[in-house]
Design a protein around this nucleic acid. Sequence first.
DNA 1: CTGTTAGCGCATTCAT
DNA 2: ATGAATGCGCTAACAG
Lengths: 321, 321
Amino acid sequence: MVDVASRAGVSKSLVSLALRGDPGVGAATRERIVQVAEEIGYRPHVLARALRERRTRRVGVILASLDNPYHTEVAAAVEDAAEKAQLSVLLAHGKRTSGQMEERINALLDLNLDGIVVVSSWAPPEMLQAAARRAPVVMIGRSTEAVDGIDSVNNDDEAGAALAVDHLAAAGHSKILHVNSSPRPAGLARRQGYEAAMRAHGLEAHIRVTSRGPDGALEPDLAAALAEGYDAVFARNDVEAADVLDYAWDHDIAVPDELAVVGYDDSMLARRTRPRLTSVHQPRADMGARAVELLLERIDGRSEDYHEVHAPRLVVRESAP
Amino acid sequence: MVDVASRAGVSKSLVSLALRGDPGVGAATRERIVQVAEEIGYRPHVLARALRERRTRRVGVILASLDNPYHTEVAAAVEDAAEKAQLSVLLAHGKRTSGQMEERINALLDLNLDGIVVVSSWAPPEMLQAAARRAPVVMIGRSTEAVDGIDSVNNDDEAGAALAVDHLAAAGHSKILHVNSSPRPAGLARRQGYEAAMRAHGLEAHIRVTSRGPDGALEPDLAAALAEGYDAVFARNDVEAADVLDYAWDHDIAVPDELAVVGYDDSMLARRTRPRLTSVHQPRADMGARAVELLLERIDGRSEDYHEVHAPRLVVRESAP
DNA sequence: CTGTTAGCGCATTCAT
DNA sequence: ATGAATGCGCTAACAG
């Protein structure tokens, strides 16, 4: 910076002001300074600036999984929104274990980011609170309960599950199985939504906790359920719905004729499977945008907690017309 | 730090030494210092340390796409390898345009990372060279040509294409279409590999540049090719192979009986499609590990360029048995 | 608009 | 083992 200053024949302070767009700098001098800076390839030292300013103008997004298309789609939505707010986004990947997750969150916070958004239900409340003591945190997705000090935005899982059940019931299905291998909050909420909706229709709820074999394939415990006459499945998310479709394919079960399938998330997978998957859509673009807005408000000093719930909607495709 | 020092009844310098594991600190005092640091929740200020030490012990991974499972799988492989080397990894997402890409690369470099690995063929050579002037760069994937000053690790695309063609030819196919919508280096290399292999088998090469409609679906220009009697397709990557499978499904073309399909990358998609996709596997775990090793060597001062080429192998599944 | 001063949190050196 | 001093590159406050 001293170099730029001397070459432009001004003071170091003026260079600082000019480069940051301070209005109190004459247009001509600013022009010259910017010119010189470019010439000698000067770039402000972000770390030094952050050390002094006590903020980085950067936010982190931490996601549990790079494999689940829904997660990466949400991350992309957050990025888009952040970009519009002149915030640079750093991604980190938590790898599905709580220890990893904590390490990653701290690694991000160590960079003194202005805030982080967590896209995962693998982060326990205590971990989130610890993080929130270091920087504003907003969570996209559902946590066990409202966590003090952090904002959240998620979709109404109970309503989403009801959309799925209503759709299947309206199509004449009465033996509707719920497939759900997740003990975490979003999974539980969808399960409860399913149970409530089934009750509302006077139908008997039946839940199957699937698990994956060593090769990552769905264990064939669906066979028993199908033998019991189930002709429709509402799965906890698109990944599990795709597992069900795969199982059906491998066992010559016709979808949707013998078995209708509904997923959750409306991720890329829903468009990729054949037959295409009917799925509950979470408004991820809106949710990402709101997450960024909430983060900005927090950075700006808001201290009450906001918990936003967005309405899902059903996207009907071939797997459950 | 001053706080820790006074509480532990030692000097600030000693705290610094103790926390960084300097051998010249007595075991008992170190113990006490670490203890106190933990008690009051002290964490070293990474930015200040980096400012002083001129390195961050962090590397960046920049990837063009979060949607292409192969890319995220490579990123995960790099992360795993980096973790073993005690390096913390930051991800950034380039969003498929060259401008975005450059912005992201610079955003990462502005953090004074010790190095970056680029997982993308969207970064033009000049951009990579500019980046390499700021920090060590290694590229995973193929660039137009060997770029001065950066290391690269990729698979042998020509050999991979030949594996696919050989397999199809051995299964009795002679009308093998190549589907390839990518004008970028890896795409070109696979195309050339296809052409060479077809020539070697005395077969006529035929290439179709697919494009996507507004809804992201593959445009139906496959129809013509199939009418011409093609009974096998080798696609440039799994995404395009999945497009072909989708097309086949939507047009009642039986795979593999009427049309055999081979993809490239052996990503998650290959296991997800039905029928499961035969695909050329890139050894991404090895490639990621090597990328990290090369980066460490660069950080350590190596200045010659390394360009590594790994051997692909074919994974046979149902779409082309 | 200038130029000086102070300090962000740390690592490092050196004399003690 | 100490503790004072220096500087990493920058911003901010202030008197000119």
